[in-house]
Computed example of a mutant assay.
Amino acid sequence: MSSNSGTPVTSPIHAGRSLNCKVLMLDDTVQNFPIPLKGRGIDLFNAVIKKLQLIECDYFDLQYNNPELIPCWLDHEKPILKQVTRNQLFFKFLLKFYTPDPGLLEEEFTRLYLLALQIKRDLLSGDLYCQEHTAVLLASYIVQAELGNYCDEYASQSYISQLHLLPNQTPEIELQIMEHHKEHMGQSPAEADFNLLDTARKVELYGIQLHSAQVRDFFSLNIFANDGVAIFIPLSIAKTAMYVVKTICFLSNVAIEIACWGLGAEGYKDVVEFYFPSRNWSKNFWKKCIEHHTFFRCHTVHKVPRSKTKVISHGSSFRYSGRTQKELVDFAREKSIKPVPFER
Rank of each mutant, 00 (worst) to 15 (best):
P12N: 03
K22N: 09
K22I: 08
V30R: 12
V30E: 14
F33N: 06
P36N: 03
G39W: 03
I42H: 04
I42R: 04
L52T: 02
Q53D: 08
Y59R: 09
F60Q: 04
L62H: 06
N65T: 04
E77K: 08
P79T: 04
F90L: 09
Y98M: 03
E108M: 00
R111N: 09
L112E: 05
Y129A: 04
Y129G: 01
C130G: 02
E132C: 06
V136I: 15
V136N: 02
S140L: 05
I142W: 03
E153S: 14
L163A: 03
T170F: 09
M178G: 01
H184W: 15
G186F: 04
E191D: 11
F194I: 04
Y206N: 01
S212G: 11
S212Q: 13
A213P: 03
Q214Y: 11
V215D: 13
L221R: 06
N226L: 00
D227K: 10
F232A: 07
S236D: 12
I237H: 01
Y243R: 15
E257H: 10
I258T: 08
Y268K: 15
Y268V: 11
V271K: 12
E273S: 14
E273P: 01
F274E: 00
P277V: 05
P277I: 01
S278L: 06
R279A: 10
K283Q: 12
W286G: 07
F296T: 00
H302C: 11
K310E: 13
S313M: 04
S316L: 10
R323G: 05
K326W: 09
I337K: 04
P339E: 08
